[in-house]
C-alpha cells in the first residue's frame, strides 16, 4: 500500500487518539510513581498540572490546527470577498464575522485585505466585522479554551466574539465613517486578481493542513509552555480566592481595568489563556476573565498600528472604542448572570 498524505493522516490520527486517551494515566504514573510525589502537595499539584496540560494542549493544538487548515483550504480571501459583495447590511455583517473564522488571515495582511474589500465595494462596517472576528476567534484560542475551560466557555467566547464583531461592524456602518479612510485607498485601481483558483485534491488539502500545523505550532509552542508553567505555579502556590477581591464579581471596576490592561498588552492566545485559567480557579469571575482575554487577543496594538496606514486616527479610535465597549458589556453581562 502506498503511503499517500491522506493515509498518513489517518494513521497519525490513530496514534493521536491513543496518546490523548492515555495521557492522564501516563502523567499519574510519572508524577506519583517515578517522581514519588505525594498526591495533594503543592509541588505535586503544580508539576502534575504542567506535565498534564502541556502535552494535552499541544496534542489538541495539532489536531485542531490541522482540521481548521483543511477547512481553510476551501476558503480564500478572494472567495470570501466574492461572497460578501452586494450583501445587504446586517446579513453582510453576520457573514463577514463568520467567514472571519474560516478564512486564512494573518494580521500582517490586514491592510491588503482591507483595501481589497473596499475596492470591491464592500461596506466599511462589513469589512470591520471581518477584521474584528478574524483575530479574536482563532484556532489557537479555541484549542486553549476548550482544553483548559471546557466546551461551555469555548462556546460562550466564540458566541460573544461573533456578537461583538457583528454589532460593532453594524454600528461602524451606521456612523458613516468613509471620510476617515485615507484618500489614497480609494484611488487604487488594482488589476483584477489574476491568481488561478486551482482545484485541490484531498492530498493537497492534507498537505495544506500539515503546513498550517508546522507554521502555527512552531510559532506558539514556547508561549504554550511558558503560559502553562506560570499557570502551574499559580495553580499550586497561589491561595484559593486570592483573586476574588481583585478580579471577582464584587469589584465593579475589575472589568474596565482588565480591558484597559488587556488592549495594549500584546500576547497571543497561547500565552495568555493558561494564566487566565489559573486566575479563574483562584476566584476571578468569568465575566472579568472573558473581558480580559477578549481585549488581549481581539484588540491588539500591532494590528491597529498596521491599520493606521489606511485609517485616519478618528476611525482607529472609533474601531477600538466600539470593540472595547462591546467587550465591557460582555464582561458585565457575565458577571451579572453567572
Amino acid at each position: 500500500m502506498k503511503l499517500t498524505p491522506l493515509r498518513i493522516a489517518v494513521l497519525a490520527f490513530v496514534a493521536w487518539w491513543v496518546a490523548y486517551t492515555n495521557l492522564t494515566q501516563a502523567v499519574d504514573a510519572v508524577v506519583y510513581g517515578v517522581l514519588q510525589l505525594a498526591p495533594g502537595s503543592r509541588i505535586s499539584s503544580a508539576i502534575h498540572f504542567f506535565l498534564y496540560e502541556t502535552p494535552k494542549v499541544l496534542l489538541l493544538l495539532t489536531l485542531v490546527v490541522f482540521g481548521v487548515g483543511i477547512i481553510r483550504s476551501f476558503f480564500s480571501p478572494e472567495k470570501t470577498r466574492r461572497i460578501l459583495e452586494d450583501k445587504p447590511p446586517l446579513v453582510g455583517n453576520v457573514l463577514a464575522s463568520t467567514l472571519g473564522i474560516v478564512t486564512p488571515f494573518c494580521s500582517c495582511s490586514a491592510v491588503p485585505l482591507f483595501i481589497g474589500f473596499v475596492e470591491a465595494g464592500i461596506p466599511l462596517g462589513v469589512t470591520f466585522s471581518f477584521l474584528i472576528a478574524a483575530p479574536m476567534i482563532n484556532e489557537v484560542a479555541i484549542v486553549l479554551l476548550f482544553g483548559l475551560f471546557g466546551w461551555q466557555v469555548t462556546l460562550l467566547y466564540v458566541g460573544m466574539g461573533l456578537c461583538i464583531a457583528i454589532i460593532a461592524g453594524y454600528i461602524i456602518d451606521r456612523l458613516k465613517v468613509e471620510r476617515f479612510v485615507e484618500e489614497w485607498v480609494y484611488a487604487i485601481r488594482a488589476q483584477p486578481s489574476a491568481l488561478q483558483e486551482e482545484r485541490l485534491s484531498a492530498d493537497d488539502r492534507v498537505r495544506y493542513g500539515w503546513t498550517q500545523v508546522r507554521e502555527i505550532v512552531a510559532k506558539v509552542w514556547l508561549y504554550v509552555l511558558l503560559g502553562i508553567a506560570v499557570g502551574a505555579g499559580i495553580h499550586g502556590y497561589v491561595p484559593e480566592n486570592f483573586m476574588a477581591g481583585l478580579m471577582g464579581r464584587s469589584a465593579w471596576w475589575a472589568v474596565p481595568v482588565s480591558v484597559l490592561i488587556g488592549v495594549p498588552l500584546y500576547s497571543n492566545a497561547a500565552g495568555i489563556i493558561p494564566i487566565v485559567h489559573a486566575l479563574l480557579e483562584k476566584g476571578a469571575s468569568l465575566g472579568t476573565t472573558l473581558a480580559f482575554m477578549m481585549s488581549v487577543i481581539g484588540l491588539s496594538l500591532p494590528e491597529t498600528i498596521i491599520l493606521r496606514k489606511v485609517l485616519k486616527p478618528p476611525l482607529i479610535a472609533i474601531f477600538v472604542g466600539v470593540v472595547a465597549t462591546g467587550i465591557l458589556i460582555v464582561g458585565y453581562l457575565f458577571n451579572a448572570i453567572m
Binding site: 478572494e78 486564512p104 495582511s109 491588503p112 487604487i188
Partner: peptide, 13 residues
C-alpha cells in the same frame, strides 16, 4: 510600497 503591492490586486502577503 503598499500602493505598488496593491496594484497587483492581492489580498494577502
Amino acid at each position: 510600497e503598499l500602493r505598488e503591492i496593491m496594484s497587483y490586486g492581492i489580498m494577502a502577503t
